[in-house]
């Protein structure tokens, strides 16, 4: 094993790690912002609201991410003239933008579907109780349904974010130098495939478990009211 190769490649791996984190974080944040309205539209009764969102989710869940990335990156290259005319080419020109766009749309579709399930899983009794208190429409969603749905969706959403972090390794095929991209370029030169991809794997492991830890902390926080209260805090409980 060439430990020297691993040590020497560390600075470039750190650059790659930064790219991976940036791409994943941006895609997760933008994707979540898109997913909430999409999920609400997905559960709407009006088929003209529900239909397009259903089609969007259908496409992005039904096709491989690799194909989506190729389609957005090389596909947009083919329509370069048209995109230039409407002033969008300067965005699509950048592999960085294409990567974030494909990952964002992909995660938005999955997250919307997770949230859809959670919204429909909110117990009817809670909604009824809220209605009985006079809540309806937006207030009902804001105060009761969405908070409950987020709590229900959280474990599944954690998985989705982990999946996205790992899937971000695909962006190396459109020239981005993320962790995988760095490993591939360095391995091409040194043929130290074993050492370099093991390093890449180790970095991904650290990132994924760091991420899972953070998400578990959040899960712990948002489900505080579901746990038994700590014993010191209940002396006043009337027996």
């Amino acid at each position: 094993m060439g430990f020297n190769i691993i040590l020497e490649s560390m600075p470039r791996f750190l650059d790659g790690t930064l790219i991976t984190i940036q791409i994943t974080a941006l895609s997760v944040v933008i994707g979540l912002c898109l997913a909430v309205p999409l999920a609400l539209m997905r559960v709407a009764k009006n088929p003209f609201v529900r239909g397009p969102v259903y089609a969007f989710i259908f496409y992005f869940r039904g096709t491989p991410l690799l194909v989506q990335i190729f389609l957005i990156y090389y596909g947009s290259g083919q329509f370069q003239n048209g995109l230039s005319q409407i002033g969008l080419w300067y965005l699509f020109r950048e592999a960085y933008f294409c990567a974030i766009m494909s990952l964002t749309l992909n995660t938005a579709a999955y997250t919307a579907e997770i949230l859809r399930g959670a919204i429909q899983g909110v117990p009817w009794g809670e909604i009824e109780a809220a209605r009985a208190c006079g809540m309806s429409g937006a207030l009902l969603y804001r105060r009761i349904i969405l908070p409950k749905a987020f709590r229900l969706a959280w474990p599944a959403y954690t998985n989705e974010v982990v999946f996205l972090l790992q899937a971000s390794s695909l962006v190396s095929i459109i020239t981005l130098m993320d962790i995988t991209g760095v490993a591939r370029v360095l391995a091409a030169r040194t043929f130290a495939f074993y050492e370099l991809f093991l390093t890449a794997a180790a970095i991904y492991l650290i990132l994924v478990y760091g991420l899972i830890w953070v998400f578990h902390r959040i899960e712990y926080r948002i489900s505080a009211h579901l746990r038994a209260a700590p014993e010191t805090a209940q002396p006043a409980a009337g027996m």
């Binding site: 090389y74 947009s76 370069q80 020109r93 592999a95 020239t175």
Partner: peptide
């Protein structure tokens, strides 16, 4: 420097101006 998996992809990006 942008590295591609195949020469065809590099050529495609030359045509698209990337």
């Amino acid at each position: 420097i942008k590295s591609y998996a195949t020469q065809d992809e590099a050529n495609m990006d030359l045509v698209s101006g990337r």
